[in-house]
Each structure stands twice: as C-alpha cells, then as structure tokens.
Design a protein around this nucleic acid. Sequence first.
DNA 1: TGGGACATCATGGTATATCATGGGTATTTA
DNA 2: TAAATACCCATGATATACCATGATGTCCCA
Lengths: 172, 172
Amino acid sequence: MPVRRRNWTGKPDRPVTSFISTYENKVDKKGRVSVPAAYRAALGSDIYQGVIAYPSLTGPAIEGFGRGALEELNRRRFDLSLDGGDFTQALVGRSDDGLVETIMSLASEMPFDGEGRIILPTRLAEHAGITDRATFVGRGTRFQIWSPKEHSKQQMAEVAALRAKLTGGDAP
Amino acid sequence: MPVRRRNWTGKPDRPVTSFISTYENKVDKKGRVSVPAAYRAALGSDIYQGVIAYPSLTGPAIEGFGRGALEELNRRRFDLSLDGGDFTQALVGRSDDGLVETIMSLASEMPFDGEGRIILPTRLAEHAGITDRATFVGRGTRFQIWSPKEHSKQQMAEVAALRAKLTGGDAP
DNA sequence: TGGGACATCATGGTATATCATGGGTATTTA
DNA sequence: TAAATACCCATGATATACCATGATGTCCCA
C-alpha cells in the first residue's frame, strides 16, 4: 500500500510552506534580482540549493519552486511506476508524462547569493520578457516570475474572469 | 511592579474557533489596526501567528482567515496531484483551480505585532476603501474587514434583502 | 450589591533589525 | 585572458520589536 508522504518540504516543523502575495523587484545591471524574503522563508532548508525554474508553457512567465518539491515529484513518479509493476515505465517513462519530462529538460537551478538574490538565465528572462524589473507571483505550491507589464495584463484578465464567474450566477 | 500582560496568545479556557460579531477599530497613521481580541482567541489554536487576507472578488472588503488553513489547503492541493498520478498538474497548476491560484497571488500575510495588531497592506486597504477606521465582521469560518461606511450600506442591503424574502414576496 | 483592585484591551510612540539594492573584488569558466 | 560568476561589505528605507498609557471591563470581597 502506497504511503502518503506529506511534508515534501523535508522539514516538518517549518511553519510556512506556501508562496503567496505578489512582489515587484528590480533587476540590476548584473542581472540580479532579490527573491522576496517571504519566498525565501517558504523555501526553508531548500534555500541552500537555490530555486528550480522553467519557462511556463502557458504564457510568458517563469515557473519556480524549491528543490525539495522537485525531488518529491520525481520520486513519486518513479515509485508509481515500480508500484504498478511496470518496470519498463521506470526506465523509459510513462506515456502520459511527456510534459513532465519536457519540463525537466527545460528546468534550471538558480543559486542564491549571500543576499538572497538570483541571476535569471538569459533564456528564461527572454521568454518572460523581463528586462529591468520582475514581478514575483505566489501560486501557493509554487511561484512565477513575470515582467511587470505582462503580469498586470494577466492579472486583470484573471480577476475579470473570476469575477464574472462568481457574480454571473451559477451558469458557467 | 508592572507585570507582563501579553499572554493573549495563551489558550482560552474553552476553545473557540469561530469568528462572530462585529467590531469597529481605529486605523492609526502607520496603518495598524487591532484585531478584535475575540478573533485572536479564535485563531489561538492556529500555531501560525498571523492572518492571511485577500481582496474579496465580489465587493469592497477584505477576507481574512488563519495561516493554518492556507497551509492545509496548499498541502492538500499538492498531495492530490501527486496521489492522483497527475504530475503535470503539480507543475503547471490545475486547469480548474484558477480561483485558488489567483487568490494566492492576491493574498497577503499579516503578522501580529506584540499587541495583537496587523498592518493593512495599502493595496487591500484601498480595495476596501479603508482609511481611518475598520469594521471587522465575523462570518463564522472566516472574517471580513470593511470600511465602516461601506459596511453599513452592505448590512442594510443584506437585512433589506432578507426582510423582503421573509415578508412573502419573492423579491427579484 | 456596591466598590475597589486588577487584568485586558485598544492605542500611541520610539529604537532596532531586516530587506532590497548597489558596488567592489576575488575566483572560476570558456 | 576576457567574461561571467561568486563572495564580500555598505547603505537607505522600511518594517518589526519593544515600551508606555489611559480606558474599559471583570472579579472578588466586604
């Protein structure tokens, strides 16, 4: 029987694990950006291994999360194959996991400097259209990095859609 | 001899978990407001010392609840994806989860100071039209923060709607 | 039951720590 | 060796921790 594994963060007593709120920080001429302190706190011990990032497949943004979440995800993927008795899967991947495997290949590790900053890889910054400022967007279990301009457009669209859904009756 | 009297964090005699009643408090020039002691008691079982708040999507108000509820929500969200074997979900978000993800980005953590006050983030205060006074409205499992003026309008509307309903006519 | 002692609360102000940011220099990599 | 990165220290703004006080409410005892 598969065991439920909570605490994917690796540190059960950590008080905070969620990425919430939105912050806009400056990208200096060296390409450095401060990751919001609240996010660094949410990363906990993962902070020593930097953050994992990959280009969003649904828009001009960068997706980010801690190394611990990545490890947990891949371990669960492997476990699922073995538990199912399909050992071939464990070696060649599950057929419906193509997206995950693509993302793994696109992901980068961004280490922190002593002040909690990271350097955005050129490829990711270009994908998100980030130049001199970056908006960090908490999504709960992970976070995103947007260019402020693109993000404000995105956010307005999101809120408008939700508002319509909530106030526009039960009809979809 | 002055005794330290800052033990509002202590467990109440009988555990309280619901937010009820309405309180109006002052917002000082630094944007600080005392959270009603009764609400703090309701949060007392929450090991996280602070509240989470986000702008209501349906009106000029701030929604608030305990940090523990947020952590629980996100932990379940991540686990659900992994347990279901849908690892893509964990990386790019669930397609039907737009509401949660948007709220995460709009939410703020408001930690208590030593006196049980929070600082209303400018963005939230503006959304609710709060300037110098704030009305805390208990809604059971969560609470809301209104500007007193907006709240009295809201309350009158609520009461009027209920009255119309009770006096027979199915008001439009 | 009246009143006083004491605790709690909302509120105000000040000192200190943290954060985001900037720049210089050493160290690695191509 | 040139460019890119890692490491170190500095700084202003801002948020947080700390301390103080008057008012209100509660409890206990005469």
